[in-house]
Design a protein around this nucleic acid. Structure first.
Length: 583
RNA sequence: GCGGCGGUCGUCUAGCCUGGACUAGGACGCCGGCCUGCCAAGCCGGAGGUCCCGGGUUCAAAUCCCGGCCGCCGCACCA
């Protein structure tokens, strides 16, 4: 590519202060990126928009929490990360290439060695004389590499902590408390925005693969038996069209197809209506950030590509100039894997109680010993007999009664006719279940990059960052036409003050020619420029300039706040907001 | 981690092959002054460089050699 868009985009990001590699003065460290003054504003607006789409739009069902980034080792043992986030790696002693030892053995011998120790894998490689698949050289010892960042909690060497590799465990661990706080109602979505760390072997692709990054994620907890009730807002997006590539299409070498969410669920391309619903929300969210709809689709992961706990996973892919399709979000049906594991490891009950519509009456036959018989027969020793009896399961009483055999209680014996059989009615009001989880999860830096790149365009040799107006870092700039005129400056500063008090993020600038200043703010994506000129002195109007079309309209100072609000938040066209000017 | 290519003011780049005249040049941007009635205008002045880092060769290194770091591409890896 002669004109490499990626290079130009990165150059703009650096020069104008959106993002750049971290630790530059020390030579940089791969996998870490700084967000600059405008980058962080953009990122924050993207996060805020995500909150709107995922949390506030479902305010009776979805809430947000924040949990720590460091977790005790127990949590990540339970989640499986300590075990499964570790890859067995073997290095060729001749060419130095590294391979996944388990993959190598599976390819050569067709046996699954998952769970075997590194020593065992080394032995298998030696015994079967497996060589480097590239150069044929001798392979070394199998070593493990864990992608978790490890640390110590407090001054105790043995107290291991991990930097979380995903947000999900924070929601699972807090589930019981949040569920009660939210008045024990299902379905329940717990959302979170936060930083995670993964000690990638070889991060590349600028902000696409980082060692530390931000995720916005939701764990949507549902009753597995209530498909429809779990998604009470399904109709909002039932007719929303999404482009999906189910795994079976991929196998058939077909491309993605556009379907409504309802069709996808009915045809079982998407296994659960909730999964489809949140994919639709994600689709609309990404579109609202200025990504064209034909540059987005959802691709299903194959059985071997997805995590072991997931029964279906889709990635949401967006096209970028350099690397083609990149993943910006993942949509997984995680089942009850995580909550079950945490129940097992913590010993806590993380189930949800589900009342039946009608309580069920169950007839039961029960057996117990006639207490008056024991009192009468054993007298002063009766207390001891009762104690022994307390440890006897009801099943034994039943057997003794039915087989007409005496029940042995240590040194004592109770005859079968002292055991009573009686019928009882038990009322069962509901049952307990472990909720299942549907998880839409976004990588914020990736989304930010993708949005930035799609906003980049050139016009007459100048760069314009055409971000959607409502996520622009700076919303408007106020400019006196001429730098050295105090009367213009005074009015411009007053307008600046009014707008900032009204809650807009505004800049004021009087340095350089007016054209130069317009160009400056086009590059950082400021959608509106308000210019105070000599006509302002006569009739209290100013010009409002649109970043994308460069068209201008004349508007009264008195209604600037109102007009700017329509322009920024309601996407009103520039020509409808005032009297067009030809320049 | 392997192989290939690369790293020079804020940004883009010239110089590197063929070591010296390089006090590292230019453009854009930035700052100050003048000017300026709407799209990077002009004039004057200014600031800004560990030539990625470390070591070596040499009388002399941005330039040659070695090691490292970082970036891109390929391989491998990628919850």
């Amino acid at each position: 590519m002669a004109e490499d868009k990626y290079q130009k985009v990165l150059e703009l990001a650096k020069r104008r202060g959106f993002f750049w590699p971290s630790y530059e003065i020390y030579g940089g460290v791969a996998g870490f990126y700084d967000m600059g003054p405008y980058g962080i504003l953009l990122k924050n607006r993207i996060i805020e928009k995500w909150r709107q789409y995922f949390v506030r739009d479902h305010s009776n069902y979805v809430i947000e929490i924040e949990s720590p980034i460091i977790g005790p080792s127990k949590v990540y043992e339970a989640s499986g990360h300590v075990e499964n986030f570790t890859d067995p790696i073997v290095e060729c002693t001749r060419c130095g290439r590294k391979f996944r030892a388990d993959h190598l053995i599976k390819d050569k011998l067709g046996i699954d060695v998952e769970g075997l120790s590194p020593e065992d894998m080394t032995r298998i490689i030696k015994e079967n004389n497996i060589k480097c698949p590239v150069c044929g050289g001798e392979l070394g010892e199998v070593k493990t590499f864990n992608l978790l960042f490890k640390t110590h909690i407090g001054p105790y060497e043995g107290n291991i902590g991990y930097f979380r590799p995903e947000l999900a465990q924070g929601m699972f661990v807090a589930f019981k408390r949040v569920y009660e706080v939210m008045r024990s109602r299902m379905p329940l979505g717990i959302a979170q925005v936060g930083r995670v760390g993964r000690n990638e072997i070889s991060p590349r692709q600028a902000m696409m693969r980082l060692r530390e990054f931000t995720i916005m994620e939701m764990e949507y907890f549902i009753d597995p038996e209530e498909k429809e009730k779990s998604c009470p807002f399904f109709e909002r997006h039932a007719s929303t069209r999404i482009r999906i590539l189910p795994y079976k299409y991929k196998v058939e070498e077909r491309g993605p197809e556009e379907v409504t969410v309802r069709e996808a669920v009915e045809e079982k391309l998407i296994l659960h209506p909730c999964l489809g619903y949140w994919m639709a929300v994600s689709n609309e969210f990404i579109a609202s950030l200025g990504i064209p709809r034909d540059e987005v689709y959802f691709e299903e992961k194959g059985p071997h590509e997805r995590a072991h706990y997931s029964s279906q996973t889709f990635d949401q892919l967006v096209r970028v100039s350099r690397w083609g399709w990149v993943e910006v979000s993942g949509h997984s049906y995680r089942g009850d894997y995580d909550l079950s594991r945490h129940m097992q490891y913590s010993g806590q009950d993380l189930t949800v109680f589900k009342p039946f519509d009608e309580p069920k009456i169950v007839e039961k036959t029960r057996y117990l010993v006639d207490k008056s018989y024991i009192g009468r027969t054993f007298r002063s020793e009766a207390k001891k007999v009762f104690e022994l009896l307390a440890n006897i399961p009801e099943e034994e009483l039943k057997n003794a009664y039915l087989q007409k055999k005496p029940l042995k209680l240590g040194d004592y014996e109770i005859p079968p006719d002292a055991i009573l059989e009686y019928k009882t009615h038990e009322k069962i009001t509901g049952k307990k279940y472990i909720p299942h989880v549907i998880e839409p999860s976004f990588g914020v830096e990736r989304v930010t990059y993708v949005v930035f790149e799609h906003a980049y365009r050139e016009k007459e040799g100048r760069i314009i960052l055409s971000l959607p107006r409502d996520i622009a870092p700076i919303q408007a700039v106020v400019l006196p036409l001429i730098e050295k005129d105090d009367s213009l400056r005074k009015i411009a500063v007053e307008i600046y003050d009014d707008l900032r008090r009204a809650g807009f993020y505004i800049l004021y600038d009087d340095s350089g020619s007016i054209g130069r200043r317009y160009a400056r703010y086009d590059e950082i994506g400021v959608p509106a420029a308000i210019t105070v000129d000599y006509q302002t002195l006569e009739d209290n109007t100013v010009t409002l300039r649109d970043r994308d079309s460069w068209r201008q309209v004349r508007i009264p100072i008195a209604s600037i706040v109102d007009i700017l609000r329509k322009f920024i938040y309601f996407g009103e066209e520039i020509d409808k907001l005032g009297t067009p000017i030809s320049t």
